[in-house]
């Protein structure tokens, strides 16, 4: 009996069809597994190995190269605090220290209630809003101890369920079609199964994130802070020329 659900197996097969060689689907398939189980579970590894014609040792060996794959169960929310240079200069270690005390755990650890797993991360590419953290890879910039407390509270209370899906969920938008072009790299595979038209456009989380949002205007607190990656990008169209 496969461990992956019927739907996920079908999604995994659809992923395989996107590549000229099966093994290329390994990372996407592991994300899928992590979405299902919250971590890269041993049972799932065996499914993925079989699907891709690999040994479980190879799948595990490859998965363990990548930081995003957790081979052991983690909390509902994986909180990654960037401590790399830009965030460090903006007080990331002080922030991390605060979160450690507040959660009662250390990087690599999980809170007793299973709610949070804390990580001390390398640069997350939101240095314009340092220090930053991600929660299940949803970005929260310009973080301060106070905003962290508010964010943690929102997470615990389930107020951010739409923005921050459970750990493992990466891209909630599904590919709407298979391969259409055919050509030298392989034939057209026609439409993908399970086209979800409602999610193929805009997810609720995306709708609620505003971009760009000028730094520091705190539109609605940490919860709705957008990844302000474009905050000062060049000159705004309006103010240019």
């Amino acid at each position: 009996m496969p461990h992956l659900s019927e739907d996920n197996l079908e999604r995994a097969r659809a992923l395989v069809a996107l590549y000229p060689e099966k093994r290329s689907a390994l990372i996407p398939a592991l994300h899928l597994l992590q979405e299902q189980d919250g971590y890269v579970s041993p049972e799932g590894i065996e499914d993925v190995a079989e699907l891709l014609g690999l040994t479980p040792a190879e799948v595990r060996g490859t998965a363990s190269f990548y930081d995003m794959f957790h081979l052991e169960p983690v909390g509902k929310y994986v909180v990654a605090v960037c401590t790399n240079i830009a965030c460090m200069l903006a007080g990331a270690y002080e922030l991390l220290h605060h979160i450690e005390e507040s959660l009662g755990t250390h990087p690599g650890g999980t809170t007793e209630d299973g709610m949070f797993t804390l990580e001390d991360a390398e640069c997350l590419a939101l240095c314009g809003n340092a220090p930053c953290v991600t929660v299940n890879w949803r970005y929260f910039g310009d973080m301060t101890p106070e905003r962290w407390e508010a964010l943690a509270e929102d997470l615990r209370a389930g107020r951010l369920d739409a923005e921050v899906p459970p750990h493992g969920t990466l891209c909630r938008v599904r590919r709407s079609v298979g391969l259409l072009a055919g050509g030298a790299a392989g034939g057209a595979t026609g439409p993908m199964p399970a086209v979800d038209v409602t999610t193929s456009r805009t997810t609720p989380a995306m709708a609620s994130t505003v971009l760009p949002a000028p730094a520091g205007d705190g539109a609605g607190g940490a919860a709705s802070r957008s990844p302000g990656t474009g905050a000062q990008a060049g000159r705004q169209a309006g103010e240019g020329s």
Binding site: Y139, G183, A185, S200, M206
Partner: peptide, 25 residues
């Protein structure tokens, strides 16, 4: 090119969603 692969840093979940949405469009 016979196919294009856009390799996006995994942690950029929102970027992946926007990119996949844009691709669908």
């Amino acid at each position: 090119a016979a196919r294009v692969f856009i390799y996006v840093r995994g942690e950029m979940a929102l970027g992946l969603e926007r990119l996949q949405s844009a691709l669908n469009e």
